[in-house]
Amino acid sequence: MTSIGTGYDLSNSVFSPDGRNFQVEYASKAVENAGTSIGIKCKDGIVLATEKIIASKLLAPGKNKKIQTIDRHVGVVYSGLIPDGRHFVNRGRDEAQSFKSLYKEPMGLEGLISRLGYFVQAYTCYNSVRPFGINAIVGGIDDSGSHLYMVEPSGVYWGYMGAATGKGRQAAKAELEKLDLPNISCKDAVKEAARIIHLVHEDNKDKDYELEISWISKEETNGIHKFVPNDLLEEAKKYAEEEAEGRNDSDSASGSDSDSDEDME
């Protein structure tokens, strides 16, 4: 970023001479250091997961949920500034509600994400506001199947088979690419999600985290966005830990790392 300090980064709605909007790029910085969130498109639905960093030991475990619902069939998870995410979700809820009020049927994912894209983009155009400091992964099922999108602070959104954002996004993307998407079942994807979050957290070990996983599946939840049941979550956590141990074992077997026992939980 060669133009930093030239004054072109102080406001939205102002381009730098080389055609960049620095405020938007800074917003992405806010995302890059936040807890990792991923979304997986499966053959029967969508799985969302997030690594929720525990800011204080006093926070009640199991409360303070981060994954949210936009409509019965749509879930969101985001990395970045939580209040920005809340504002984003509220707008999604309003859009979904007014769509259903008008057309009786639930809002399609394509339509919803396009409205949300416009909404986020608008915050890059005015100097009285700042862009959203989040990358939001929006997933859901409508009558044309399951969809997974990720919206960035610029307002751009892409459809994904596997999406990852936050601090551990690079490692997570590498892991997601190894999966057989989108032919994986939701049930398997829950376990893989747990594994990936567990894996990418290793770079952030000094902080505690809580795993949160939700899904929208035709077979498992009747197309409704729900947190995965507790027993499945526990099973997934166990799988993630076993996988991590296995990996460490094989690592130490090959003698690559001497301090691998440190990585054990």
Partner: peptide
């Protein structure tokens, strides 16, 4: 609408 709003708490 009430039901949907109630379901935000999953």
């Amino acid at each position: 609408d009430l039901e949907v709003e109630d379901s935000y708490d999953m």
